[in-house]
Write a protein that binds this DNA or RNA. Structure first.
Length: 258
DNA sequence: AGGATTGTTATTAA
DNA sequence: GTTAATAACAATCC
């Protein structure tokens, strides 16, 4: 699931548990460790405290008094806080034990996972080529990011090197809210359309961050898209669905004409 | 059984 | 250089 709002929720979880020393780090499945061994992860973090957690796009960035933990949640990752004696489900892959409980990284599919940077200066190496966080993109900046792009709008919005944080559900939701067809060429939007897209992005993100997910409300595309015979929550027209570079894309042919 | 799934990346092709 | 499509990664659900 994790797109920007979900990861923002994980960031809050971590932020509530800064300041206490990490008593132990347990790796139950090293398959989620990327470029670091369990031994090195333990050695780098034991006795350290997590500091204020940050997020960039879908990355959670957790400095720990020197070393920096960077987590990408893939499609099924999560971070949650539990009492140490609460039974762990079988998808818990890594546990950071603190004084009053533990942080658990769970991940069913293990598509991405946990990286370790030596220090803050080393963190960009892990993040790679990331565009600005979607929450930091102004209207003018959005126009600049789309300018000259010949790819489709949906594909451009989900390209993390252009804008960081938008995933499949958010991109469809934003296009639907802005009443713009996701197959349009990104660079072809006129200024009023750019403004509508930006407004939709702000509103969708704000409500989603609040809910810590893209909320499947009945008045949202996300609340309708998985119905057996989905119709547009605005106008009742049957929704159109198509695969776009391997991702399901849903839109309303009436509200979002080609 | 077969197909689908909210993420990224490598590869190939146009 | 840009864009698009596909498979792969892994594990589940319908």
């Amino acid at each position: 699931m994790p797109e920007l709002p979900d990861v923002e929720g994980f960031r809050r979880v971590l932020d509530e548990h800064t300041g206490e020393p990490i008593e132990s780090v347990s790796v139950y499945d090293a398959g989620v460790l990327r470029g670091v061994t369990p031994r090195r992860l333990r050695a780098a973090l034991r006795g350290h405290r997590f500091e204020a957690a940050r997020r960039r796009g879908k990355w959670l960035i957790a400095p720990a008094e020197g070393p920096v933990v960077l987590i990408h949640f893939g499609m099924t990752g999560s971070l949650s806080w539990h009492p140490a004696d609460e039974p762990r489900d079988r998808f818990v892959r890594v546990v950071w034990r603190l004084r009053d409980g533990e942080l658990r990284y769970g991940d069913m599919r293990k598509l991405k996972g946990i990286h370790l940077a030596a220090d803050a200066a080393d963190a960009p190496r892990v993040l790679g080529d990331l565009g600005p966080d979607a929450l930091d993109v102004s209207r003018d900046r959005l126009a600049g990011l789309l300018a000259g792009r010949r790819g489709r709008l949906k594909t451009t919005l989900t390209d993390q090197s252009v804008i960081a944080g938008l995933g499949n559900l958010l991109a469809d939701e934003i296009c639907w809210r802005a009443r713009i067809n996701p197959l349009r060429t990104a660079g072809d939007l006129d200024p009023p359309e750019q403004a509508a897209l930006h407004r939709a992005m702000r509103r969708v993100l704000r409500a989603s961050v609040e809910a810590e997910r893209v909320p499947p409300r009945a008045t949202w595309l996300t609340g309708a898209r998985d119905d057996p015979d989905p119709v547009c929550p605005r106008c009742g027209t049957h929704l159109t669905s198509r695969r776009l570079s391997g991702r399901r894309t849903v839109w309303c042919p009436r509200c979002q004409p080609a």
